[in-house]
Structures are given as C-alpha cells and as structure tokens.
Design a binder for these strands. Structure first.
Lengths: 347, 347
DNA sequence: CTGAAAGCGCTTACAG
DNA sequence: CTGAAAGCGCTTACAG
C-alpha cells in the first residue's frame, strides 16, 4: 500500500478525506486538515501526478514549445530565457507548471507538437517563432486545446497571439532617418522562415512607400544572428554607384561587425553610415558610438503570453474575459549616436 | 466512449489488442497491427499520457531543472540552449521527452524540485548549477530517482555528474602565463553561489602554488556575466604599486569591457596586460586582438549528461553499465594574441 | 494471437 | 464533515 492509501491508513481516515484536505476542499474539519497536511509534509507525500491528471482530466501544466537550431544555440541572443522568466512567474501564481519543450530543428515540429497535444500532456500550449503558414496553429485550433502564439501567422483565425510591434519600430526608424535627410535606407532581414522576417520586410516597404521612397532590393540583406555579417553588409552597401546612407538592422549584433568594418575602412558609424538597430541587446550596449535602438522587456512578453493563455483556461479564466487576445507589444526608442549625419552630398 | 476504447470498438477488437499494437508488443498479428496503426494515425489518436504513466509506472520523460536569475536572462551567455540541444537529441533517440523546468530565482529551488519528484512527474532529473552544499542532491538521492548533475557538489556521494574541467583550464592558463614570464596573475570569479566559482578559485590557488607564486586576494575580482565590469577590473589591477600583468577571466564577456578600458588608457591587450578567457563565447569572437580562450562544445555537455542519466534508467540501461558516471569534460586551448608580452620590467 | 478483467493512484459525486 | 465506491484511460498478467 502506498501513496494516498498509505497516508490515509496511517491517519485512520479515508483516502477521500486526505484528498480533500490536500486539495483545499472546504468540506473538511479544520483539525483533520491540519493533521493531514502535517503528515503529508512529514512523509514528503504529494499526489501522484499521473493519477491526479487522470482523475481530474487536467494536468495543471502548460507547454512552451521552442525550436533549437544551430543558429539560436550559438547565438548571443537570450530571447527565450527572458521570456520564460515572465511566463513562469504568471503561471506559477496560478498553480500551473511551465514545461519548456525543446524541439530539435532536425525533427518535424508538427509531429513533435502533435504528440504532446494528442496525449493530453498539457492543458495549454504556447508556441514560438510562428511561420507565415504554420500548420501547428491549425492543429491546435482543431484539437481545441487553449493556446497562444508568440508571433502572428496567416494560418488559423481568431486565435490569441502576442507579437512585437515590428510595424511601429520600422515606422519610427524610417521616419527618423528620413527626417535626417536619408533617402537610401537599407535593411537587414533574418534568413530563417519565421514570420517576423516577412513582417519586418513588409513594414520596411510600407514605411518607404509612405515617404515616397522607392524600394530597391539591393538594399535588402539577409543576415544571421551573428556579428560576422558586417563586412558583407558594409561593402555591399557602400561600394556601389548609389550607396546606402543608412541601415536598419533586424539582428542588432550585426552592428558589431558593421562597426568593425567601418573602422577598417576609416569610416565612422553615425557619420558615414547611419545605423538603427531593432532590439537593444546586451551584446551591443558597449559599442561606441551608442547604437540607436529599441527597448523591449523580454519578461513582459512572457507575462503577456501567459495571461493570454490563462484567459482561455477554464481553471483561471476570469469569467469576464472574452478569451482572445491579439497584441503587438510596442518597443520604445532608445536614441544613440549611430544614426546621425551622412546626407548633404550623399548620392 | 473515447480514447482507446473508441478506437477499439471502431476496429472491432479489444482495447488490449490496440494497446499492444500501438506499443510494439510482438504478440500481435501483423495485419491487425497494420489496421490499428492506420486507424490511430487517421484519427490522430495517441494514448493519454496520464493513463499511460499510471498504468506503466513510468512517464517516459526527463526533467532538466534550470534556474532563472536576473543575470542569466539578461546576459549574453547561451549556455543552456546549447546544452539542451545535446540532451534532447540523446533522450529523443531513446523515446524520452525532455522537459526543461524553469525555476525562478525568487522561489525556493528545493521545494520546486521536490514537487516534481514526489509527484512522480519525471523518470529522471538533470540538475544545473550545483552549489557546494546542495540539498537538492540529498533529496534526489534519498528519493531514489535517477539523476545527473551538471556540476560537482560536496553534498551527496557516489552520484553521477558531468562538469567542466576547470582545473585543467586553470592549469593550462597559468602555465602559459608563467611561461610568458608573468608572476602577478589576477583572476575574475563569478559572484553567484554556484559551486563552479569555488572550484575555479581553488584551481587558481593550486596552480599558483604549483609555480611557487603567492596568492594575493587583491588579484581576485568578482564579476557578473556582463561586459561592464571591465573598467573596475583594469583600474583595480593596474593602478597599484604592484600591478597585475595578466588576468584569467571566468566570464569571457568581461574581456569586452577590459579591451575598451585599456584602449581608453592607451593600453593594448596582449602587450600591456595579458588576458586569457575561460570559455570562448561568440560574444568576444570579434575582438582584436583575438582573445586566447578555451573551446567547449555545449551540445556535448548535454549529450554526456543525457547518457549518464540513461545509464541509470531501467528502460535503456545497457545491462553492462555500472551506473555512475563522473566526468570532467576537457576544454581545448584556442590560442589568440591577447596573452602575449608584458613582463621584462613588469613590477 | 486475442480478450476479459484487474489494477495503476488519485478525485468526486453520492449517501449519510 | 466523512466514507464507500465508481471512474479517469490506459497496460498487462492470465486464460484460452
């Protein structure tokens, strides 16, 4: 005899009473509850998770699926850790465990997700890095499991997502550069298939258009999340008849390589080339001149995602909530000195 | 009727047969198995995890507990993601799910771990950032659950751990500097309470002693995992009657701040101050002169930990294995130009 | 090779 | 406020 039965016998009460006492059921004599709680504490007893889930029909846990690719694991970007911090805090406050589920890039992410979902291993799911077309969203919607995505997608409809306000960032950056007299504004884009790449690109085109600037695909450069790409970026943009005078970076670390290459060529950021970074990562904080960029609180993203999920969970949903949350988290400009001058005789 | 019963009825067989077919039990007619597998695939059926765990007594999942602190989530160190990649691959190959369990620094890590363990939520545990005295290890040992730690500890005994060869790294670094004529060798240490701090410090003392060099606590500096600390390090070490001529860094990012501060003072790394970094992180790869450091494959650490855990799991344990693995993973020197000269008239 | 049935360790109406 | 009992959805001896 083990588990709850053991405890019950030990105390001379039924397993039902033990269960009630442990689960905070009000229909238990205060003294009885005390005894049970103390005994459980003393014996280090906690209800078996599998049995509990089976009986209750819920797991009290939420999965956060992330994908492990060569790039992210060697990169200096700490996106997920910060986000997880915020998520965990909110979920824990509601008695939910956060399980971070790492899916290798080499395995099919759809199958991976499907296993956890169809097995009923979690009560809710949070997805990261949505694609423009993302079957995982259809899967989640048809399965009926509550979920939230970090990133928008063209798949599915009417589901909850939290995303960064790429449009706002891009608009602000372009406005600022145009105001500085720039007309040849380049952009770097992530090379992966995550939807944010497309969104950032679109926002770039839109912002240029708003100012009547022509789109020139030669000014669009795919980069990885590493500093090395700076050489190609600088040379590619400057060594041409109509050089770019400014650049907006998706991955801020690219600034490191750009700064270095500019220095090698005797040029200076914020004078010979204007630079605006997207997210102000730690890795570039030390650069001089300071990179103009946008601030984002990673934990806040996690917090928002967790809350959006809670709104869908029967357990914790405040009856009032409609359920669907779709939110673009704004980033705030952190002016530096990297996006100064150039114009005058530019072209 | 749902789940396996639904499927069974649909196919006109018993739930026992469905279960056997799905679990690869050899006692099933090939044709029957085919039918069952197809139907399961078509209906998107997968055995409920809770019911399965309850019946089998195992969860087929492994927990990797990590701690989220302010420092790690804002730092540029990607230690965990790389490690997780290796772990996940090995475990997945053995049909085990890896659940990364994030514990907030603000909550008690002992209680956090205890919950997962006493509930039987995982078949095995991997711990990170062991402390010199770490009650979690005692907990795990007394609970009897298979586990592996990333990092040694004075707690417990005869358990499996994987750790970095801090001693080897330190010995190599000091030898190299002494050979270069250095006698005033400083070191930076992590400020947290993780055991690796103590181990690195001890290795430092031992290595100095081996060369007959005196230990001077003024040459020991606590740093966080961020580049800012460079100013204090440089000024503290050079502005004194008996300046240090070399420094060994625990957090390689500190090199960024040091390089900058040296530049401000008109000094040069590898000429006016010798620098050797511990782990060659991406974030400093771009520095000039190249930082002399040590290479480590993060996924390999994860792989080693996962294998050490598998050796203890009844499911996968190759009968031959004794079970306990204690391994210091060696790092290889990557010579740069940051640890050159200085000596001659030093003191 | 297959099925009926017990059992995994909880929770929760249902009675009292 | 408490207990006996059914039931959660699987797996697995046990018989055949």
């Amino acid at each position: 005899m083990r588990g709850i039965a053991h405890l019950a016998r030990e105390l001379g009460v039924s397993t039902a009473t033990v269960s009630r006492a442990l689960n905070g059921n009000p229909n238990v004599n205060a003294a009885t509850r005390q005894t049970v709680l103390e005994a459980a504490q003393r014996l280090g007893y906690a209800a078996n998770q599998a049995a509990r889930s089976l009986a209750q029909g819920v797991t009290h846990s939420v999965g956060f699926m992330i994908e492990l690719d060569q790039e992210s694991t060697t990169s200096t970007d700490y996106f997920f850790m910060g986000v997880v911090e915020g998520m965990q805090a909110v979920l824990a406050a509601h008695g939910l465990d956060l399980l971070v589920l790492p899916c290798a890039k080499s395995q099919d992410n759809f199958t991976y997700l499907q296993r956890f979902v169809s097995r009923g291993a979690v009560d809710g799911m949070i997805l990261a890095e949505t694609r423009r077309i993302d079957r995982r969203i259809d899967l989640l919607q048809s399965s009926g499991i509550p979920f939230v995505t970090l990133g928008r997608s063209d798949s599915g409809s009417g589901y909850s997502w939290i995303d960064l306000d790429f449009e706002g960032v891009m608009a602000t950056a372009v406005d600022r550069l145009v105001q500085g007299g720039h007309r040849r504004i380049a952009v770097t884009l992530p090379s992966g298939d995550a939807n944010y790449g497309s969104i950032f690109a679109e926002a770039y085109r839109d912002s240029l258009a708003r100012h009547g600037l022509a789109f020139d695909e030669d000014l669009v450069i795919l980069t990885r999340r590493r500093e090395d790409d700076g050489d190609a970026v600088v040379d590619g943009l400057l060594d041409r008849p109509d050089p770019a005078t400014a650049i907006i970076l998706f991955y801020e670390v690219t600034a490191i390589g750009i700064y270095r290459r500019l220095a090698e060529r005797g040029l200076r950021p914020g004078r010979d080339l204007s630079i605006i970074g997207f997210r102000g990562e730690d890795s570039v904080r030390f650069l001089t001149p300071q990179v103009t960029c946008f601030h984002l609180s990673l934990p806040d993203i996690g917090t928002a995602a967790a809350r959006a999920l809670l709104a869908q969970l029967p357990l914790a949903a405040p009856a009032s909530s409609s359920g669907i949350v779709q939110c673009r988290v704004p980033l705030s400009l952190v002016p530096g000195e990297s996006d100064g001058p150039v114009p005058a005789g530019q072209a």
